[in-house]
């Protein structure tokens, strides 16, 4: 019986945690405002960016890697997008398409951010695969380098006064479809796509294989370097996209944007049951992880808990989830021994 309870707790730990938090906040917030549609939509809006980053981070972490540079990439790509929206498509002072009409300029900014994000991701990937630098160190270096370039971009000033049609991408006024902010739709679409990529495609299988046992994968004909390069590019593109959404949301591209976002993304992934040792993890888990973090942040604010205590609770929840995961691993190991 005790084992049964533990089993349910470990298999559905994150779902249970989400339910407990929702019920608790519903009961304890004044007039149950937590559970109002408006607040629930707010929560999804608040977690959209972390979910998008978490998706990329899930790919990276399943290969037993890590990417600490995403917050910086987000800031830099936001600046690139804002700059292009305002000043047209240009590379290194050479203007390619000046004075494009606004809707087209927004598209240019978006694509520019995605390309730059992917490019930075590919640099991370090359350093990690070709030069065999540990991912933690490689992306730690990228984190500060890219952050530096973000400050250099506009002499440390944000780029503001962006056109309205750009701001709509952030999900503010007019930026909604069926009452749901655009970033939430984007995140949802990406959840669905990436879930199928990971669970149904050859590439997805290879991502798991590389994380599960890189040498065995290589000897089974998996181009392990290409797989690893790809996951860092995916991460970079998604960080670029997140940068656009973030800049649009606050109508300003700020070189200080995205500080600590890499850690929030990692937290969502780990809460969702991915193993930092690689080989294990799901997109749906990451979505749940992002939801738990979002619900917790929102609920604690609703209850008027001080910012400092919010941080404490966030840490406690992460620790609890990871301990549950450890219990699950121990349980599986015991079953294996019994089976033998």
């Amino acid at each position: 019986m005790k084992e049964r309870i533990l089993r349910v707790l470990t298999d559905y730990g994150i779902v249970l945690m989400l339910i407990v938090l929702v019920v608790y906040f519903t009961i304890s917030t004044p007039n149950h405002i937590f559970i109002t549609p408006l607040n629930l939509i707010n929560i999804t809006h608040q977690i959209a960016i972390n979910t998008i980053l978490g998706i990329g981070m899930t790919f990276v972490i399943i290969t037993a890697g890590i990417d600490l540079s995403v917050g910086s990439v987000l800031a830099y790509c936001g600046l690139v997008a804002a700059d292009m929206v305002k000043h047209g498509l240009h590379i290194g002072g050479v203007t390619i398409l000046p004075n494009t009409p606004v809707p087209l300029a927004v598209l240019e900014g978006l694509l520019g951010a995605l390309v730059v994000g992917g490019f930075i991701g590919s640099l991370n990937g090359v350093v990690i695969t070709k030069f065999k630098v540990n991912p933690f160190i490689a992306t730690l270096a990228a984190m500060t380098i890219v952050r530096g370039f973000a400050f250099i971009y506009n002499n440390s000033y944000p780029i503001s006064n962006l056109p309205n049609s750009f701001d709509k991408l952030g999900g503010g006024v007019g930026g909604r479809f069926m009452h749901i902010p655009y970033p939430v739709w984007v995140a949802l679409l990406l959840v669905v796509i990436s879930h199928f990529v990971l669970s149904r495609t050859r590439f997805g299988r290879q991502v798991y294989a590389v994380g599960g046992n890189e040498e065995a994968s290589r000897l089974s004909g998996v181009n392990t370097n290409r797989v690893k390069l790809m996951v860092y590019i995916i991460m970079g593109v998604l960080a670029g996209l997140a940068g656009v959404l973030q800049a649009a949301d606050v109508s300003s591209a700020d070189p200080q944007a995205g500080l600590m976002y890499e850690l929030n993304a990692i937290a969502a992934v780990v809460l969702g049951g991915s193993s930092l040792m690689g080989g294990r993890g799901t997109i749906l888990g990451t979505l749940l992880g992002a939801l738990v973090i979002g619900v917790l942040n929102n609920g604690l604010i609703m209850l008027g808990i001080s910012d400092f205590y919010q941080q404490v609770w966030r840490g406690v929840v992460i620790l609890f989830a990871v301990l549950l995961d450890q219990a699950k691993i121990a349980l599986l190991a015991r079953q294996r021994r019994v089976a033998e």
């Binding site: 149904r200 495609t201 050859r202 590439f203 299988r205 290879q206 798991y208 294989a209 599960g212 046992n213 040498e215 065995a216 994968s217 000897l219 089974s220 004909g221 998996v222 080989g279 294990r280």
Partner: peptide, 27 residues
């Protein structure tokens, strides 16, 4: 070097020849 221990029998069996089972990249 031979197996992805955490993966299923099915996934280990097909790992070296997924191409034969895939269409448009989907297994």
């Amino acid at each position: 070097q031979g197996l992805i221990l955490g993966m299923a029998v099915r996934e280990n069996t097909t790992l070296a020849n997924l191409a034969a089972l895939s269409r448009f990249g989907f297994v």
